[in-house]
Design a protein around this nucleic acid. Structure first.
Length: 290
RNA sequence: CGAUCUGCAU
């Protein structure tokens, strides 16, 4: 049963919900965990109604499944329902508290209210602190976030660094973002791409391209990075560079270009005057043009 | 074996 649940989780986490559902239906044994995994899978793919249906029909619920339902509402932008779940759930763990805190943060509740919730929590961990850090960044208080990072955080991890980094980036503080980036004890894909986006969105196109080149030696860039790079190539009018990244994304990194990538490339080629190539690309792409 | 924090748009 544990193995089946792990498989279920694997399908659900990679977005293969059809397979997950089929596997779930064919399981000889299921438990609370199997059902919760499926609930989370639906919620994360944006299928709130099925998630809700699973929740209301499940034979038993524990704190994990209640919190999963709370998060499901949060992820789909339903703050009021998330609050309601929080208020009605029989027990609340630290994770439940963190989940409602994130609900506030992600749905843009006023900073004061979010801080009040944070202060009222019976206990806090790094996830709580990181969520609060994000709240400051999101509201444009990158400085306060930095202060909190320096003083109040009991500990810091890579997520804390990344949160602060993106806070600087979002507020246009590219230089501070850069120095923070250089100071970081370790960097992951999110750190690199936050830095890349920071440069790109503040007009530092050459730095963005340099960052991308460095990043490729250490991390596997994902769809988001390539999308950003195509935008950069577009801004600086480097169609040939865009083309080679487009090829590289498929050949070297085995990433399937999405509609957005094709869209960027068509835009890039058209602006650079390669209209026939742009048309060819539209004809050969595996999507219907819209 | 399951729930909560960080990058994002032609």
């Amino acid at each position: 049963l544990i193995t089946w649940n792990a498989m279920l989780d694997g399908y659900a986490k990679t977005g293969h919900l059809r397979k997950a559902k089929t596997l779930f239906d064919s399981l000889p044994q299921r438990n609370l965990i199997s059902v919760t995994v499926l609930l989370v899978g639906f919620a994360q793919s944006g299928n709130l109604s099925d998630a809700k249906r699973i929740f209301t029909t499940m034979p038993e619920r524990d704190t994990v499944s209640w919190t999963a339902m709370l998060a499901a509402y949060t992820q789909n932008g339903h703050l009021e329902e998330a609050k309601l779940v929080f208020d009605t759930m029989p027990q609340r763990s630290l994770v439940s508290w963190n989940a409602i805190l994130s609900a506030f943060v992600q749905n843009g509740v006023h900073l004061e209210q979010t801080k009040a919730l944070f202060d009222s929590m019976p206990e806090r961990d790094m996830v709580s602190f990181n969520a609060m850090l994000a709240a400051y960044s999101w509201s444009g208080y990158a400085e306060d976030a930095a202060k909190m990072f320096g003083i109040e955080l009991p500990d810091r991890n890579l997520v804390s660094w990344n949160t602060l980094l993106s806070g600087f980036a979002e507020n246009g503080h590219v230089c501070q973002a850069r120095s923070l980036f250089l100071q970081m004890p370790e960097r992951d894909l999110l750190s690199w791409s936050a830095m890349l986006v920071a440069f790109a969105q503040n007009g530092r196109f050459a730095s963005a391209l340099d960052t991308f080149e460095s990043m490729k030696t250490l991390e596997l860039p994902d769809h988001l990075c390539f999308r950003e790079i195509f935008l950069v190539c577009n801004h600086v009018g480097k169609a040939s560079m865009g083309r080679s990244h487009f090829a590289s994304m498929q050949l070297d990194f085995e990433l399937e270009p999405t509609k957005h990538h094709f869209c960027c490339m068509v835009d890039l080629l058209s602006r650079a005057g390669y209209l026939e190539d742009a048309e060819d690309l539209i004809k050969t792409m595996p999507f219907l043009p819209d």
